[in-house]
């Protein structure tokens, strides 16, 4: 990427230097607003409207008829009451939460360990690991899912062949037929996809740590573990908390992977998570009122889960 920049006209020479602070103060009050204006406009246009629509729709009976122009009927909390008295929602909610927490925790743990490993090995080994991470990260979700479905194919997939080589009788076993193994497979795939981003982000954080500080600590007699715990950990803590927060949010709304595994032979009704449940309600059954209510619940849940992190991140903004 070119970083060529044209030198701006030098309209302020040394003589004006004494006026500099006042100028900056005046400028500081307006410049940032112009800087964030484009962000605000695009977010309001593309996300603000849909969220408001969704919020309103969650209080309406909005089914197939409304798709053809019949005015929606206001039902207050009707959709929500219907939902919370339905045990199916609670099962799906529990399943999604468990899946999300297991995935996010494993992803950050593995990613962190791999980042430390990258720091610990020689250039060649590090580059090999980084390139393999980049390749996995670069895979488009739909392409990656297609390969994974082929890897776990019950007739001729590599997974079953490999298990047979290790003496496990997996010949012809369909891992997607049982909800438990379905989720183990889904988890492996989601973690496989997510770790590269986490590992490379944490590694980038590690490279920002000055080598001199670590050398000084080593000279003062700090062991490797002490250096990791007392210097590296506090310095990369912000990176760690941000990637953990993002993983939790992304894993809670995981959709494409579950959907494509369901298409490949999973039992849809027993493997729904929040994302696919909303899709099923909205696109499958045309019940947009209930689908919007689940979406709002999902949003509230996401905010609740991450509230502690958001608060601690905001504290850093002081």
């Amino acid at each position: 990427m070119s970083t060529e920049v044209k030198a701006p006209p030098t309209n302020r020479s040394g003589g004006e230097k004494s006026a500099e602070p006042a100028f900056r103060k005046r400028k500081a009050s307006k410049t940032p607003i112009f800087l964030i204006l484009p962000t605000i406009i695009i977010l309001l246009a593309a996300l603000g409207y849909p969220v408001i629509w969704q919020f309103i729709t969650s209080f309406q009976k909005f089914g197939l008829k409304q798709q053809f122009g019949v005015a929606p009927e206001f039902v207050g909390l009707g959709n929500y009451i219907e939902l919370v008295s339905n045990p199916e929602l609670w099962v799906i909610l529990g399943r999604s939460l468990l899946f999300c927490l297991l995935c996010a925790a494993s992803t950050v743990a593995i990613g962190g360990l791999l980042a430390l490993l990258m720091k610990r090995v020689g250039t060649v080994a590090r580059l090999i690991l980084q390139v393999s991470m980049l390749l996995a990260w670069a895979m488009p979700v739909v392409a990656a899912m297609t390969v994974w479905v082929w890897l776990i194919d019950w007739r001729r997939g590599v997974l079953n062949w490999l298990l047979v080589q290790f003496g496990i009788d997996a010949q012809g076993h369909n891992w997607l037929a049982d909800p438990v193994t379905f989720f183990v497979i889904a988890m492996i795939i989601v973690v496989w996809m997510s770790v590269p981003f986490v590992a490379l982000s944490i590694y980038a954080g590690l490279t920002q740590i000055s080598g001199e500080v670590l050398e000084a600590a080593a000279m003062d007699g700090a062991t490797g573990w002490q250096r990791t715990r007392l210097i590296i950990m506090p310095l990369i803590a912000p990176v760690l908390s941000i990637v953990l927060l993002l993983q939790i949010i992304w894993d809670l709304r995981v959709f494409t992977q579950v959907k494509l595994l369901q298409d490949a032979g999973g039992v849809a009704n027993e493997t729904h998570m929040l994302g696919t449940y909303i899709y099923q309600l909205g696109v499958g059954s045309g019940d947009f009122g209930t689908a919007s209510a689940v979406s709002i619940l999902m949003l509230i849940l996401t905010v609740a889960i991450s509230w502690y992190y958001v608060r601690s991140l905001m504290k850093e903004e002081n």
């Binding site: 977010l43 996300l47 409207y49 849909p50 969220v51 629509w53 969704q54 729709t57 993002l246 949010i249 809670l252 709304r253 959709f255 929040l274 994302g275 909303i278 899709y279 909205g282 696109v283 947009f288 689908a291 919007s292 689940v294 979406s295 709002i296 999902m298 949003l299 996401t302 905010v303 991450s306």
Partner: peptide, 12 residues
């Protein structure tokens, strides 16, 4: 905004 579930917005 980063947290808004995309699946809940695509109909809108």
């Amino acid at each position: 905004i980063q947290m808004l579930p995309a699946e809940g917005m695509f109909i809108a």
